[in-house]
């Protein structure tokens, strides 16, 4: 029993790292642009379909497809911020909300029009393989996905810490007026940030394909998942998003194993409500 539970926890951590990467995108966008991307999960699902198509047409492994997809998503994010979202910067939250809900509705139903409601599986040759370490059996796909998620996250941390542009973006997040005063091109940095946020989702969505089958209905579910994680970890905190992702991954896996899979997200929401009630700024967030 305990070794099975241990297995479940490890699986949860691995899945949670992928969740964390997805949530990281949301957190980065909110932390800098101050816009809550209500279409976040929907973008993850687009990435899932992209990965599915690349795999079924070109036999491209999602671990490789992740790169071009993330790059493409960066472009989409950049353009989206420049063309659609930028006029809404500084407008009331509900207007931004409606805008992005509109985007989300278009994505979900666009996917529905093109692919239909049925789940599209990506059947990897190693989908059912696992590593055996002592009493542990760890899925290969989850392990690879988790490593890839960690790698992308590490890159992102390095970007924000060591590059000139990354530092400029952080300056924007900390002090917008100051950033504008010292001559930073805030619009461009916002677009870059949105691009980076979507690149995270693109990468995470691609990895998700190894864990779940693509279907349009996943969009809103993933949006909620990303919100939950980011709030638990602390909106705007990068490390918080990863920790939140792991927490939710483990809580889902344990709830699914101990009680019933259909109630797994109830636990996530209970966790969320508890965090909001007792530490509304999130585990690693700063009180504003």
């Amino acid at each position: 029993m305990s070794s099975i539970l241990f297995n479940v926890v490890v699986q949860g951590i691995l899945t949670g790292l992928v969740y964390g990467l997805m949530a990281l995108g949301l957190s980065v966008i909110f932390g800098v642009v101050r816009v809550v991307n209500f279409a976040h999960g929907e973008f993850a699902v687009i990435a899932m379909y992209a990965a599915y198509l690349l795999f079924s047409a070109l036999r491209l492994d999602p671990l490789i497809a992740m790169l071009p997809i993330a790059l493409g998503f960066f472009g989409i994010g950049y353009a989206l911020q420049r063309l659609l979202i930028n006029p809404f910067i500084g407008r009331p939250a509900h207007e931004q909300f409606i805008l992005l809900v509109g985007v989300a509705i278009i994505i979900v139903n666009g996917l529905l029009m093109i692919f239909g409601p049925d789940a599209r599986p990506t059947n990897l040759s190693y989908a059912f393989d696992s590593f055996a370490i002592g009493p542990l059996f760890i899925d290969k796909v989850r392990t690879y996905a988790a490593i890839a998620a960690l790698a992308v996250t590490g890159l992102l941390f390095a970007f924000f810490r060591y590059t000139h542009t990354g530092t400029a973006i952080r300056a924007c997040a900390d002090n917008l007026v100051g950033a504008a005063v010292v001559g930073l091109d805030v619009k461009r940095l916002y677009a870059l940030t949105f691009g980076i946020g979507l690149a995270c989702v693109g990468a995470a969505g691609t990895l998700m394909v190894t864990i779940a089958d693509a279907t349009p209905a996943l969009g809103p579910a993933y949006t909620l998942l990303a919100f939950t994680i980011v709030i638990i970890g602390g909106l705007g905190s990068m490390a918080g998003a990863l920790i939140g992702g792991i927490l939710i991954g483990v809580s889902e896996a344990c709830a699914g194993f101990l009680i019933t899979p259909s109630m797994k997200s109830m636990f996530s929401f209970a966790l969320l409500i508890a965090v909001l009630a007792f530490r509304p700024e999130g585990l690693l967030g700063k009180r504003t």
Partner: peptide, 10 residues
Amino acid sequence: APGTKAVFYG
């Protein structure tokens, strides 16, 4: 196709 209406709605 399902979803067409909703796309316009969005």
